Amino acid sequence: MGANTVDIDLDDPRFRIRPYQQMVASCTGALITSIIVTPLDVVKIRLQTQQKAMSSNKCFLYCNGLMDHLCPCLDGKSPPWMQANGKFTGTLDAITKISRSEGVLSLWSGLSPTLVLAVPATIVYFVSYEQLRLFFKDTYNDRYNKGGKNSAQPFWIPVLAGSTARIWAASLVSPLELIRTKMQSQKQSYTEIGQALKTVIRYNGISGLWMGLGSTLLRDVPFSAIYWLNYETIKQYFWGTQRTFTFNLAAGAVAGSIAALLTIPFDVVKTHRQIEMGEKKIYSEQPARSGSTYSTIRLIYGQNGIRGLFAGLTPRLVKVAPACAIMIATFEHGKRFFQAYNANQMLELKT
């Protein structure tokens, strides 16, 4: 009995974890993911900046596994760290030079804005997904399966729950993202947030606080739907397998890789639009909206053809797979911990 209790159904209503426990589990996962993935992404940022600093582009975009960051390269000048370290020849060379000249902790630069903004968004996303999934699953089984022991979960449940949770989380964070981009680029203090908000609203109205949300949802909603569909499918396929941390790690990596592969065109469009919009927000006193998604697709296709819509596939897979794996494995481990805690609490009440 003791050996089997580890693998009892996480959706069992008797031991189902509470929303606040889901919040703790997702927060832990977001913290661990950002801490592990950030050093790898810092190196990628530096390598990417080397190319951007040589061109006329003023902005470049990077992601640390949890959120996107938009960074300016002012006046086409090389940043101080590039002048100090020289040109990086590869990942290992970048890690060595950065650690030697700037200190090991510099590999975690950019972690603060991620923790301030991405962690709450991640908590909202995962808790919303879990609550919606369980609600849809319970409703379905009460109507069609009469709440049987091996309750069913149709494929559309993770698709709908994942898509809805992503829309909610992205919409919640979008206004903060706009202000954060402006603050980071111009080193504004927190006392200037109100003025920045007034500037955006003056030229674009209240809806201006959600500039860029459409392109974000264009990428993130399909990704979320495909990711959760694949992840839940893998879990159901290996129903009798012990759900170890390694199993969840592998399932998350596979599900994330498939979702990243199928949504890479959306990611390319989103990157182009965010950089375009970011330059208008950063370098203009009158924040203006970027072009439409359709015009961006036509531009990319006209310049590079179909291959242009699939640019950056390998770096995206390298980034997304470990981030998804770490996040979901940590989240599931936290859920199992609280499930065992709830089960023990119930046993103590009965004795």
Rank of each mutant, 00 (worst) to 15 (best):
R243P: 10
N145E: 03
G90R: 08
P322W: 12
I32P: 00
G214M: 08
T263E: 01
V119S: 00
C71K: 06
S151Y: 10
K149M: 11
Q131G: 13
T122H: 00
L313D: 06
K280M: 10
G147A: 11
L213K: 02
T293S: 13
G212I: 00
R243F: 13
Q21P: 09
P80I: 06
T296Q: 01
S151K: 13
K335N: 10
R336G: 03
F136M: 12
E285R: 03
Q345F: 13
D7C: 13
T191P: 07
F135L: 15
T91R: 10
F60G: 01
P113F: 03
I328P: 01
A260E: 00
V159N: 10
S171H: 08
S257A: 15
T89V: 08
L31H: 03
I306E: 12
I35H: 04
E276V: 05
A94V: 07
V200A: 05
K44M: 10
L132G: 03
L317D: 08
N4H: 14
D220H: 07
M346W: 13
L313P: 06
I95T: 05
I98P: 01
T246G: 10
G148V: 13
T139S: 11
Q242E: 15
G76C: 14
L117G: 03
E232G: 00
G334Q: 01
M346C: 08
A94L: 03
V173D: 00
Y203I: 01
I306S: 15
P19D: 11
N342K: 14
R336P: 08
I206C: 09
E332V: 07
P113T: 06
K335G: 05
M277D: 00
N85V: 11
H333V: 11
N230R: 04
S215L: 13
I275S: 01
C27G: 14
L132V: 10
P79S: 08
L160E: 09
G2T: 15
P265I: 00
D12C: 09
R289H: 08
